[in-house]
Amino acid sequence: MYKVVKNVDEAIQGIQSGMTLMFGGFGLCGIPENCIMALSKTGINKLTCISNNAGVDDFGLGFLLKNRQIKKMISSYVGENDEFERQMLSGELEVDLIPQGSLAERCRAGGAGIPAFFTPAGFGTEVAEGKEVRIFNGKPHILESALTADYAIVKAWKGDHYGNLVYKGTARNFNPMMAMAGKITIAEVEILVEPGELDPNFIHTPGIFVQRIFQGEKYEKRIEQRTTRKREI
Protein backbone atom coordinates (compact mmCIF):
# COMPACT_ATOMS: atom_id res chain seq x y z
CA MET A 1 0.00 0.00 0.00
CA TYR A 2 2.93 2.28 0.67
CA LYS A 3 3.61 4.02 -2.68
CA VAL A 4 6.06 6.72 -1.69
CA VAL A 5 9.30 7.01 -3.64
CA LYS A 6 12.21 9.17 -2.53
CA ASN A 7 12.32 11.65 -5.36
CA VAL A 8 11.61 12.28 -9.02
CA ASP A 9 14.55 10.18 -10.21
CA GLU A 10 13.28 7.12 -8.38
CA ALA A 11 9.76 7.87 -9.66
CA ILE A 12 10.76 7.70 -13.34
CA GLN A 13 12.89 4.54 -12.94
CA GLY A 14 12.03 1.98 -15.59
CA ILE A 15 10.86 4.39 -18.26
CA GLN A 16 12.64 3.40 -21.46
CA SER A 17 13.02 4.60 -25.01
CA GLY A 18 10.13 3.64 -27.27
CA MET A 19 7.55 3.49 -24.49
CA THR A 20 4.10 5.07 -24.48
CA LEU A 21 3.58 7.68 -21.77
CA MET A 22 0.50 9.63 -20.68
CA PHE A 23 0.85 13.10 -19.22
CA GLY A 24 -2.01 14.79 -17.37
CA GLY A 25 -2.71 18.49 -17.83
CA PHE A 26 -4.63 20.96 -19.97
CA GLY A 27 -2.30 23.48 -21.54
CA LEU A 28 0.24 24.07 -18.78
CA CYS A 29 -2.39 23.65 -16.06
CA GLY A 30 -1.96 20.51 -13.95
CA ILE A 31 1.06 19.10 -15.77
CA PRO A 32 3.59 16.90 -13.92
CA GLU A 33 6.36 19.45 -14.28
CA ASN A 34 8.93 17.71 -12.08
CA CYS A 35 8.73 14.42 -13.98
CA ILE A 36 8.85 16.17 -17.36
CA MET A 37 11.94 18.10 -16.31
CA ALA A 38 13.62 14.93 -15.03
CA LEU A 39 12.80 13.03 -18.25
CA SER A 40 14.30 15.86 -20.28
CA LYS A 41 17.62 15.23 -18.54
CA THR A 42 17.70 11.55 -19.56
CA GLY A 43 18.63 10.14 -22.95
CA ILE A 44 15.26 8.40 -23.24
CA ASN A 45 13.73 8.97 -26.67
CA LYS A 46 11.36 7.63 -29.35
CA LEU A 47 8.52 8.20 -26.91
CA THR A 48 4.86 8.15 -27.80
CA CYS A 49 3.23 10.79 -25.64
CA ILE A 50 -0.49 10.99 -24.96
CA SER A 51 -1.38 14.43 -23.66
CA ASN A 52 -4.16 16.88 -24.48
CA ASN A 53 -1.55 19.48 -25.50
CA ALA A 54 2.18 19.55 -26.17
CA GLY A 55 3.46 22.34 -23.94
CA VAL A 56 5.09 25.58 -25.06
CA ASP A 57 8.62 26.13 -26.37
CA ASP A 58 10.25 26.50 -22.98
CA PHE A 59 7.91 24.67 -20.64
CA GLY A 60 6.11 21.37 -20.21
CA LEU A 61 6.41 18.82 -23.00
CA GLY A 62 8.22 21.51 -25.00
CA PHE A 63 11.36 20.39 -23.13
CA LEU A 64 11.05 16.84 -24.48
CA LEU A 65 10.26 18.11 -27.98
CA LYS A 66 13.32 20.33 -28.02
CA ASN A 67 15.52 17.31 -27.18
CA ARG A 68 13.80 15.22 -29.90
CA GLN A 69 12.70 12.71 -27.28
CA ILE A 70 9.19 12.41 -28.70
CA LYS A 71 8.47 10.28 -31.77
CA LYS A 72 4.70 10.63 -31.72
CA MET A 73 2.16 12.92 -30.04
CA ILE A 74 -1.44 11.89 -29.44
CA SER A 75 -3.34 15.08 -28.55
CA SER A 76 -6.43 17.17 -29.25
CA TYR A 77 -4.82 20.58 -29.64
CA VAL A 78 -1.17 21.34 -30.30
CA GLY A 79 1.08 23.88 -31.90
CA GLU A 80 1.40 26.42 -29.12
CA ASN A 81 5.13 26.15 -29.79
CA ASP A 82 7.38 26.78 -32.79
CA GLU A 83 9.53 23.69 -32.31
CA PHE A 84 6.46 21.47 -32.46
CA GLU A 85 5.38 23.10 -35.71
CA ARG A 86 8.87 22.73 -37.22
CA GLN A 87 9.13 19.03 -36.31
CA MET A 88 5.59 18.30 -37.47
CA LEU A 89 5.99 20.05 -40.84
CA SER A 90 9.39 18.40 -41.47
CA GLY A 91 7.91 14.98 -40.73
CA GLU A 92 10.22 14.28 -37.77
CA LEU A 93 7.25 14.12 -35.43
CA GLU A 94 4.15 11.99 -35.95
CA VAL A 95 0.97 13.61 -34.71
CA ASP A 96 -2.36 11.93 -34.10
CA LEU A 97 -5.11 14.48 -33.43
CA ILE A 98 -8.15 13.23 -31.54
CA PRO A 99 -11.33 15.07 -30.49
CA GLN A 100 -10.85 16.13 -26.88
CA GLY A 101 -13.86 14.27 -25.48
CA SER A 102 -12.83 11.11 -27.33
CA LEU A 103 -9.31 11.45 -25.93
CA ALA A 104 -10.64 11.75 -22.38
CA GLU A 105 -13.04 8.84 -22.81
CA ARG A 106 -10.43 6.65 -24.51
CA CYS A 107 -8.16 7.08 -21.48
CA ARG A 108 -11.06 6.46 -19.10
CA ALA A 109 -12.02 3.33 -21.06
CA GLY A 110 -8.41 2.14 -21.00
CA GLY A 111 -8.36 2.36 -17.24
CA ALA A 112 -11.84 0.92 -16.82
CA GLY A 113 -11.36 -2.25 -18.85
CA ILE A 114 -13.57 -1.18 -21.75
CA PRO A 115 -11.70 -1.95 -24.99
CA ALA A 116 -13.73 0.33 -27.25
CA PHE A 117 -16.89 2.44 -27.43
CA PHE A 118 -19.09 4.24 -29.94
CA THR A 119 -19.23 8.03 -30.02
CA PRO A 120 -20.87 10.53 -32.39
CA ALA A 121 -17.82 12.83 -32.26
CA GLY A 122 -16.00 12.95 -35.57
CA PHE A 123 -18.60 11.17 -37.69
CA GLY A 124 -18.47 12.46 -41.26
CA THR A 125 -14.99 13.94 -40.75
CA GLU A 126 -11.50 12.63 -41.45
CA VAL A 127 -11.35 11.40 -37.84
CA ALA A 128 -13.85 8.68 -38.84
CA GLU A 129 -11.77 7.33 -41.72
CA GLY A 130 -11.25 3.58 -41.41
CA LYS A 131 -13.44 3.33 -38.30
CA GLU A 132 -16.53 1.19 -37.92
CA VAL A 133 -19.78 3.17 -38.07
CA ARG A 134 -23.00 2.06 -36.41
CA ILE A 135 -26.37 3.70 -36.05
CA PHE A 136 -27.81 4.04 -32.54
CA ASN A 137 -31.10 5.86 -31.98
CA GLY A 138 -31.05 6.91 -35.62
CA LYS A 139 -27.69 8.65 -35.32
CA PRO A 140 -24.33 7.48 -36.73
CA HIS A 141 -21.50 6.78 -34.28
CA ILE A 142 -17.88 5.75 -34.79
CA LEU A 143 -15.92 3.07 -32.92
CA GLU A 144 -13.05 4.44 -30.83
CA SER A 145 -10.58 2.19 -29.01
CA ALA A 146 -9.27 2.52 -25.47
CA LEU A 147 -5.87 4.04 -24.71
CA THR A 148 -3.43 2.76 -22.11
CA ALA A 149 0.19 3.61 -21.40
CA ASP A 150 3.33 1.96 -20.08
CA TYR A 151 3.54 4.82 -17.62
CA ALA A 152 0.91 7.45 -16.81
CA ILE A 153 2.35 10.55 -15.17
CA VAL A 154 -0.09 12.76 -13.31
CA LYS A 155 0.02 15.77 -11.04
CA ALA A 156 -2.23 16.34 -8.04
CA TRP A 157 -2.45 19.00 -5.35
CA LYS A 158 -2.39 16.66 -2.39
CA GLY A 159 -1.71 12.99 -2.07
CA ASP A 160 -1.11 10.53 0.73
CA HIS A 161 1.32 7.65 1.15
CA TYR A 162 -1.24 5.20 -0.22
CA GLY A 163 -1.53 7.14 -3.49
CA ASN A 164 -4.92 8.72 -2.83
CA LEU A 165 -5.08 11.99 -4.76
CA VAL A 166 -6.91 15.31 -4.56
CA TYR A 167 -6.67 17.82 -7.41
CA LYS A 168 -7.17 21.56 -7.22
CA GLY A 169 -9.27 23.70 -9.57
CA THR A 170 -9.02 23.06 -13.28
CA ALA A 171 -5.66 21.32 -12.75
CA ARG A 172 -7.78 18.16 -12.47
CA ASN A 173 -8.65 17.91 -16.22
CA PHE A 174 -7.14 14.73 -17.75
CA ASN A 175 -5.25 13.61 -14.64
CA PRO A 176 -7.89 11.29 -13.12
CA MET A 177 -8.49 9.31 -16.34
CA MET A 178 -4.81 9.02 -17.12
CA ALA A 179 -4.08 7.88 -13.58
CA MET A 180 -6.42 4.96 -14.26
CA ALA A 181 -4.92 4.10 -17.65
CA GLY A 182 -1.25 3.62 -16.77
CA LYS A 183 0.25 0.15 -16.31
CA ILE A 184 2.38 2.08 -13.83
CA THR A 185 1.05 5.42 -12.66
CA ILE A 186 3.38 8.01 -11.19
CA ALA A 187 1.75 10.80 -9.19
CA GLU A 188 3.65 13.93 -8.27
CA VAL A 189 1.98 16.15 -5.69
CA GLU A 190 2.47 19.57 -4.18
CA ILE A 191 1.74 18.29 -0.70
CA LEU A 192 2.34 14.70 0.47
CA VAL A 193 0.54 13.73 3.68
CA GLU A 194 0.15 10.74 5.98
CA PRO A 195 -2.72 8.29 5.39
CA GLY A 196 -5.81 9.56 7.23
CA GLU A 197 -5.12 13.22 6.62
CA LEU A 198 -7.22 13.36 3.46
CA ASP A 199 -10.99 13.16 3.87
CA PRO A 200 -12.05 9.86 2.22
CA ASN A 201 -15.22 11.59 0.99
CA PHE A 202 -13.21 13.94 -1.15
CA ILE A 203 -10.61 11.69 -2.78
CA HIS A 204 -10.65 12.23 -6.56
CA THR A 205 -8.29 9.37 -7.52
CA PRO A 206 -8.31 6.36 -5.16
CA GLY A 207 -4.82 5.04 -4.41
CA ILE A 208 -5.43 1.72 -6.19
CA PHE A 209 -4.66 3.47 -9.48
CA VAL A 210 -1.33 4.87 -8.31
CA GLN A 211 1.93 2.89 -8.03
CA ARG A 212 4.41 5.65 -7.14
CA ILE A 213 3.94 8.98 -5.41
CA PHE A 214 6.31 11.77 -4.41
CA GLN A 215 6.23 15.42 -3.47
CA GLY A 216 7.60 17.59 -6.28
CA GLU A 217 10.59 19.66 -5.29
CA LYS A 218 9.38 22.85 -6.91
CA TYR A 219 6.32 24.02 -8.82
CA GLU A 220 6.57 26.92 -11.22
CA LYS A 221 2.92 26.54 -12.37
CA ARG A 222 3.35 28.82 -15.32
CA ILE A 223 0.29 30.69 -16.64
CA GLU A 224 -0.20 30.50 -20.39
CA GLN A 225 -2.69 33.37 -20.86
CA ARG A 226 -2.73 35.82 -17.98
CA THR A 227 -6.08 37.61 -18.31
CA THR A 228 -7.31 40.00 -15.62
CA ARG A 229 -9.78 42.79 -14.86
CA LYS A 230 -8.38 46.16 -13.90
CA ARG A 231 -9.32 47.38 -10.46
CA GLU A 232 -11.32 50.59 -10.42
CA ILE A 233 -9.63 53.08 -8.10
Binding site: F26, G169, T170, Q225, R229, R231
Partner: peptide, 18 residues
Amino acid sequence: FPWEGEEDADMINAGKQT
Protein backbone atom coordinates in the same frame (compact mmCIF):
# COMPACT_ATOMS: atom_id res chain seq x y z
CA PHE B 1 -11.37 37.22 -15.41
CA PRO B 2 -9.75 37.63 -11.95
CA TRP B 3 -8.76 40.99 -10.53
CA GLU B 4 -5.18 41.92 -11.25
CA GLY B 5 -2.93 40.06 -8.84
CA GLU B 6 -5.52 37.36 -8.11
CA GLU B 7 -4.71 35.08 -11.05
CA ASP B 8 -4.53 31.40 -10.17
CA ALA B 9 -2.55 29.02 -12.39
CA ASP B 10 -4.96 26.27 -11.33
CA MET B 11 -8.03 28.14 -12.56
CA ILE B 12 -8.18 28.54 -16.34
CA ASN B 13 -10.78 28.26 -19.10
CA ALA B 14 -10.61 26.19 -22.29
CA GLY B 15 -8.71 29.03 -23.96
CA LYS B 16 -6.07 28.69 -21.20
CA GLN B 17 -6.96 32.15 -19.86
CA THR B 18 -7.10 32.76 -16.12
